[in-house]
Simulated assay, not measured.
Amino acid sequence: MPARFLVVLDADSTLLRNEVIELIADEAGRGAEVAAATEAAMRGEVDFATSLRQRVRALEGVPIAAFERVRARVEPTQGAAAFIAGVHERGGVVGVVSGGFHEVLDHVAPGLGVDRWRANRLVVDDGALTGSVDGEIVDAAAKAATLREWAASLEVPLSRTVAVGDGANDLRMMAAAGLGVAFNAKPTVRERADIVVAPVDLREILPLLPR
Rank of each mutant, 00 (worst) to 15 (best):
L147S: 11
A49L: 04
L122N: 00
V94Q: 08
W150N: 05
P207Y: 10
G167T: 06
A37T: 01
D26C: 10
E27S: 06
V181K: 13
G99W: 02
R73C: 11
A185Y: 14
R57E: 14
A152M: 05
L112I: 10
I137K: 09
V114W: 07
V138P: 07
L202S: 14
P2M: 02
A82N: 00
E75Y: 03
M173A: 06
V8E: 03
A142D: 09
V156H: 10
V196T: 14
V20R: 07
V62D: 01
S132R: 15
P63S: 09
G31F: 04
V114A: 09
F101A: 00
D170H: 07
S132H: 15
F5W: 00
A41F: 06
V197H: 02
A176L: 03
S13I: 11
V156S: 06
G113T: 12
V123D: 02
A25F: 11
D201R: 11
R203G: 12
L15M: 07
E149Y: 08
R73P: 02
G29C: 02
A198C: 03
G100V: 05
W117D: 07
A3S: 14
E22G: 10
A128G: 03
V156R: 08
A82K: 04
P210W: 04
R17T: 13
I84E: 03
R53Q: 15
L9S: 12
A49R: 10
V162R: 09
V108N: 01
A168Y: 10
I21F: 10
D26G: 15
G113E: 10
P210T: 04
F5R: 00
P76I: 11
R30H: 09
L16S: 06
S159Y: 05
R71C: 14
D12P: 04
A141Y: 12
G86F: 11
G113A: 08
A35L: 01
R55I: 13
V96E: 07
D26L: 14
R116E: 13
E39T: 13
G113D: 10
P157S: 11
A193I: 01
M174G: 04
A182K: 10
V197P: 05
A81C: 00
V20Y: 03
T38M: 05
P76C: 12
G178K: 05
I24M: 12
E204W: 02
L9W: 05
D115E: 11
V87N: 07
P210V: 06
P76S: 11
A37C: 02
A185T: 14
V162A: 08
G91F: 05
V56E: 03
V197I: 15
L208T: 03
E155R: 15
G29E: 05
R192W: 00
R90A: 15
R71L: 14
T188V: 15
F67K: 06
A141I: 12
D139C: 03
A3C: 02
A11T: 12
P199C: 11
K186L: 08
V162M: 07
A177T: 05
E191G: 04
R160A: 15
A82Y: 00
V74A: 04
L52P: 12
A142R: 13
V156T: 12
T38W: 04
G131M: 13
G113Q: 09
A65F: 08
I21H: 06
I137D: 09
V97M: 03
A168P: 07
D134G: 02
R53G: 11
L6M: 11
A80L: 01
